[in-house]
Design a protein around this nucleic acid. Structure first.
Length: 499
RNA sequence: GGGUGCAUAGCUCAGUCGGUAGAGCAACGGCCUUUUAAGCCGUGGGUCGCAGGUUCGAUCCCUGCUGCACUCACCA
């Protein structure tokens, strides 16, 4: 190369131009830089795990992305990375031939290559493929961030959050521990399926686009359905459809689905999130508490930890989960027994405590406000909170022990956050109609998140709905819990950012 | 939606009390057959997020905008 040409090779545009020229140079060598296939005999971790059986006897074929290159004239070391593991490869010019070594000289970090060779160790003891063949499988033409590492210490980590989320593929290439989170996410979902399938549940799919949104208290995303010439909503929950299936005669159903709530984004909330909901005929919320506890303990057992770090806490799964009434907890943390307190007196109490609560904040919301403010954050170890106010639980059965304002509902709290929500499902169509009507009144009084009347759902219930227990579990938070991630965006592959 | 902060080379970051910018890695040329943050010699790469304003002069000061992060409020 002349001195003039040597000046090329600086800005990104020039790097891109050089890589493009390399593609042509490789073609000029008679090699296709974007291959069609390569048959692998082992993954990198299989070679490391089975080193003793493979060493110096077996010819192996491996493939992956080139992550480091150390050239030393007529021989070079490099590491490739496949899905799980990095592995070193040693290329010698007189072993792979001059033509292939010429090819090697044209390679860049980020290229996908295959190698054929024998398994050895270097004198420093690192398991290494001593290559007989080099195959270029896909040429990199845009530089990837180069992260260096020594003794476990990482240098120049690719840690720009915006770029990591926008270009998640780069994040996954360069930060392998990110991949582990999503592998764990996949396992957690699989364990949920296994648990339910083993118990005879049927996995179903219900509409994402719904003419009436329901099953939760939230603001929806709205869209227009051209073929039906009608406004539709993206589901905020699948609850009402799953109950229709219970009415239809499915004994046990579940769905793992995205819900969409048109609300704020923060470290614990993403407008598009995944929930497991399951419904089971003839059981009540007491049964479900045992079952949900079993699910969480099964997960911890599968992970192999009975206690683990989450945020600044150590969560202990060895003990039975506590079960306490919401009013009992309120009495302890607020200092006043508010059970049976009339709405106006409750509002006075909230105002005394410095909350701004006008008439649009009804009885149930007042209690929820106190609970969220005084109690929620204190619930670190797993605990089932029971006995929710009826006013904020329009789909749950009234408590059977005569408390008219209370429903048979529980939420599981861990580390101050809600992880599951369940109830003995309301199956009295007269009561259901009244509850949804009173939600309508709340909406008219200014509660934007009050639930909507769904005539078709109430009609379905009129045909007869068996006693049923139903559970909802937020999958994203479950993954956060078991992977010790503080930000929901870090358990979602492609969190939405403004474009 | 409110508050705070950030935006400089492909990546990670310095820096300029206002005089158009540096390092390491990556890149390019050369040497090097067991290296591993390989090493050695050499090369040069930037609309300092965008748009205005102040100024003789702005990457720096001011205003607006955009994006992101953190945080408070609300929903899980």
């Amino acid at each position: 190369m002349s001195n003039e040409e040597q000046h090329i090779g600086k800005s990104l545009a020039e790097i891109l131009a050089i890589r493009k020229e390399k593609v042509q140079k490789i073609r000029d060598l008679g090699i296709e830089p974007f291959a069609y296939e390569f048959s692998k005999s082992h993954s990198c971790n299989e070679i490391i795990d089975h080193y003793e059986e493979l060493k110096e006897t077996v010819t192996v074929r491996i493939a992956g992305r080139l992550m480091t290159i150390r050239r030393m004239g007529k021989a070079s070391f490099c590491h490739i990375q496949d899905q799980k593991t990095k592995l070193q490869i040693y290329f010698q010019e007189n072993k792979i031939g001059n033509d292939n070594y010429e090819l090697f000289k044209l390679l860049d970090i980020g290229d996908i290559i295959g190698a054929v060779g024998t398994v050895t160790k270097t004198r420093t003891g690192e398991i290494t493929i001593f290559a007989d063949e080099l195959h270029l499988l896909s040429k990199n033409v845009r530089p990837i961030p180069v992260v260096k590492e020594k003794d476990g210490e990482v240098f120049d980590a690719f840690n720009n959050k915006e770029q990591r989320y926008r270009q998640r593929y780069l994040d996954l290439i360069v930060n392998p521990e990110v991949k582990d989170i999503f592998i764990m996410r996949s396992k957690i979902i699989q364990w949920c399926r296994d648990f339910l399938n083993e118990r005879g549940f049927v996995e179903v799919e219900t509409p994402t686009l719904q003419p009436i949104y329901g099953g939760a208290s939230a603001r929806p995303f709205k869209t227009f359905y051209n073929a039906l010439n009608q406004d539709f909503f993206l589901r905020i929950a699948d609850e009402l459809y799953l109950k229709r299936l219970i009415i239809g005669g499915f004994e046990k159903v579940y769905e793992i689905a995205k819900n969409f709530r048109n609300e704020g984004i923060d470290r614990n909330h993403n407008p598009e999130f995944t929930a497991l909901e399951y419904y089971q005929q003839y059981v009540d919320y007491n049964f479900l508490m045992d079952e949900v506890e079993a699910i969480f303990k099964m997960m911890a057992e599968n992970i192999g930890k009975s206690s683990f770090a989450f945020a600044e806490f150590t969560i202990d799964f060895t003990q039975p989960f506590q079960r306490r009434s919401m009013f009992d907890l309120l009495k302890e943390y607020v200092g006043t027994d508010i059970y049976g307190m009339p709405e106006e007196q409750l509002r006075e109490l909230c105002i005394e405590r410095g909350f701004e609560v006008d008439k649009s904040v009804g009885y149930g919301k007042l209690i929820e406000l106190l609970f969220d403010h005084y109690v929620e954050g204190k619930l670190i170890q797993p605990i089932f909170v029971t006995d929710y106010p009826k006013a904020i639980s329009p789909l749950a059965k009234t408590s059977r022990d005569g408390k008219e304002d209370i429903v048979e509902r529980f939420e599981l709290y861990i580390a101050g956050q809600e992880f599951a929500n369940a109830f003995s499902e309301l199956n009295d169509p007269f009561d259901q109609r009244e509850r949804l009507e009173s939600q309508n009144h709340l909406r008219e009084a200014g509660d934007e998140e009050a639930q909507t009347m769904d005539e078709d759902f109430v009609m379905a219930m009129e045909y007869g709905m068996p006693p049923t227990g139903g559970v909802g579990i937020g999958i994203d938070r479950l993954v956060m819990l078991f992977t010790n991630q503080r930000y929901i965006k870090d358990v979602i592959l492609f969190p939405q950012l403004r474009s």
